[in-house]
Structures are given as C-alpha cells and as structure tokens.
C-alpha cells in the first residue's frame, strides 16, 4: 500500500462517530479512511450524547441548531438508569451551589444533622427541570448554569455524522474487506478494548445512557492523541491500551456501584475507596481518567443507600440561621426558575 489506510468497522453509530472524528484529523496526502458500518436495526431509537457534545460537535463544525434540525436533538439535563434499588436519575450538573470551595451536599448534610429533612434533588435545577418534563428551548438553556447532553434520533444522527465524515474525506464502503494498516473495530456492547497490533478495539457494555457515545469519542481522541506511523507504534499502542484500561476501570466501578447487589463488598480498591470515603466524610475521591462526573457519582451513591456519616467541617463556617435561610432561598429560586423556564 502506498498510503496508510484505516478501516473503521462495526455498529453504525460508533463507526459514524469515530469516523467523523478521525476524518477531521486523519486526512490529507497518504492517508485513507474507510468506514464500513453494519446496518442499523430498523427500530433503532435514540442516542444520548453526554455534555462533552459541545466540544465534539464544535470541532466537527456541527452547530447544535443544525443537530436540532438534522437529528431531532433536544437537550438532556439528566439520564435515568436502573440501579440495585430501582431507578436513579443522574444529573449532569452539580446539586445546589458550592460555597467557599465546599460542595453543596455538605451543607445539605449539615441541615439533615440539624434535624431537617430536605430532599437533595430539590436543590438540583437539572433534576427539577428534568422531572417537570418540559422541553427547554436551547436559547433558554444557554442562560442557565447547567451542563446538558443531547438526545437525538439515532438513524438521523448517523446520517449527519456520515455526511460530515465523507465531506472531510472519509469513504464509506459496504464491503471494505480487511485490507488496512489499522482496523478500528467498534463493538460497543462487547467488553474488550485496547490497541493490539493492527486492531484497535472500541468496546464496552452499552448499559448506561450516553456511555456508548462517550466511549467512542474518548477512543477516537485517544487514538488521535497518539496516532503516528501505524506500522511502528509499539509505544503508542501500549499507552493507548493503558489509558483504555483506566477508562474501563472507571466505568466498571460506576456500573458496580449502580448494579452490584452489594457494592460495599466490591473487590475493586478504587470503588471501595469511593464508598468508604464518601460514607466517612462525604467526599468523593477522583481517580485518573474519570468518565462520570461528581454529580452522577453522588446521585448513584445516595441511590444505593450510601450516606455520609458526617459533613465537611468547612460547612460549619456559617451559622445555623444563615444556613436555613440560604437553603430555603435556593430552593425557592430553583422553583421559580423551573416554573419560568417551562413557561418560556
């Protein structure tokens, strides 16, 4: 082969998404990018893009407005998923407002210690808006301090991404064979990932809304961050696989927290640490290469009945009366914003 050829194959959405991101960078003389998507099921429904969508789509030159039109994109403030105790809503934005560098939930925990029983979800604008069920216009959302993802029609999103990929120089082939310097196998739904010789495997379970999208994005970026001469990339392959393993471990921990019958009995030190420290003092330690945000971990921990025994001492820095007044004022404001936003 005179040029370096990358073949991206597998499920239609991952191929289109990874293909578009690669096409943005892996282009030009001596480079060939071929996409070989499998046929998507006729009943394919929606896909969730996590808040990172802003960066990804901006880099691809896809405006949110055009996605709203082309892929029926609507904002998503939280995603619902199953956990060992039923359903849990995972918000993309923090609960309440941090104060003096101390996360809000410590103040909430202090209020509980003082005998009050406020529901933490009442202090989450994201969850209140999500529960209210209204559809916020993007213009309204832009004015609120909220992280949001996008829910899109799967087939139409694939179409948008495929068009973008081809406009950036990728080719789509029904039968591309296996003639390539690197084959990117997109098998989200299986459980093996890494870069082994001439195979780059992008895989994980697709059982948490938004996970499939994020895994593909992270894998494509990771590859681009390391991409070199494909035939001579041993160091890069090792590093890619190390980073992919770290990411898988973070996802594994989150999934175990949500779904294991007894998450406290986990054999994984990183999850044990999260549970133990949160239970001890309300802090959620962060590991390298986290995939899920702190608000999502907090929601999952609480949903599994893991509660902090105490709050951060810095939450004692305001008097009781001021704390009560601050909490009720915040609750009121969130209610007002929710009402106003839904009327907009």
């Amino acid at each position: 082969m005179s040029s370096e050829r990358i073949l991206v194959r597998g499920s239609a959405l991952p191929v289109a998404l990874v293909g578009a991101i690669l096409a943005r960078r892996w282009s030009g003389k001596g480079k060939e990018l071929v996409l070989a998507p499998e046929r998507e099921g006729a009943n394919a429904s929606t896909v969730i893009a996590r808040p990172d969508h802003k960066n990804v789509h901006a880099e691809l030159g896809l405006a949110i407005e055009s996605l709203a039109q082309g892929a029926e994109a609507v904002p998503v403030l939280a995603v619902a998923t199953t956990c060992g105790t039923g359903q849990v809503s995972l918000p993309f934005s923090p609960y309440g407002m941090a104060r003096g560098g101390t996360d809000f939930h410590h103040f909430w925990r202090r209020a509980i210690a003082s005998g009050e029983q406020p529901d933490l979800a009442e202090f989450s604008l994201a969850l209140r808006l999500d529960r209210a069920g209204g559809r916020l216009p993007l213009s309204t959302l832009a004015q609120l301090p909220l992280e949001f993802g996008l829910r899109m029609d799967r087939l139409r999103y694939i179409e948008v991404l495929s068009k973008r990929a081809t406009s950036l120089g990728a080719f789509i082939a029904d039968d591309a064979g296996t003639d390539a310097d690197l084959i990117v196998d997109c098998r989200v739904g299986s459980n093996r990932s890494g870069w082994i010789e001439d195979r780059l495997l992008i895989a994980d379970e697709n059982d948490i809304p938004g996970l499939e999208w994020q895994i593909c994005v992270n894998a494509a970026r990771r590859f681009l961050g390391l991409a070199a001469k494909l035939s001579d990339s041993e160091t890069e392959r090792r590093e890619y696989s190390r980073l992919a393993r770290a990411e898988s471990a973070r996802i594994r921990d989150f999934r175990a927290l949500l779904r294991d019958p007894e998450p406290r009995e986990t054999e994984h030190a990183s999850l044990s640490r999260k549970i133990d420290l949160f239970e001890a003092c309300g802090r959620i330690p962060s590991e390298d290469f986290e995939v899920f945000g702190q608000p999502e971990w907090l929601a999952a921990l609480l949903a599994r009945g893991i509660w902090p025994k105490r709050y951060d001492r810095l939450a004692d820095s305001i008097p009781d009366k001021q704390l009560r007044s601050w909490l009720s004022s915040m609750q009121r404001q969130i209610g007002e914003i929710t009402d106003r936003s839904l009327r907009a």
Partner: peptide, 21 residues
C-alpha cells in the same frame, strides 16, 4: 488536610485517602 479535615480523632478513611494522594 483542609479537604479531608477529620470529623473526629480517629479518621481511618480520610487518613488513607490523604496518604494515597
């Protein structure tokens, strides 16, 4: 230390996290 300031004299989890970090 400020982030993990212990609630009581015995604070094994805060201590372990501090040492790790």
């Amino acid at each position: 230390l400020v982030a993990l300031f212990p609630g009581s004299i015995e604070a094994p989890f805060e201590r372990a996290e501090y040492n790790r970090l």
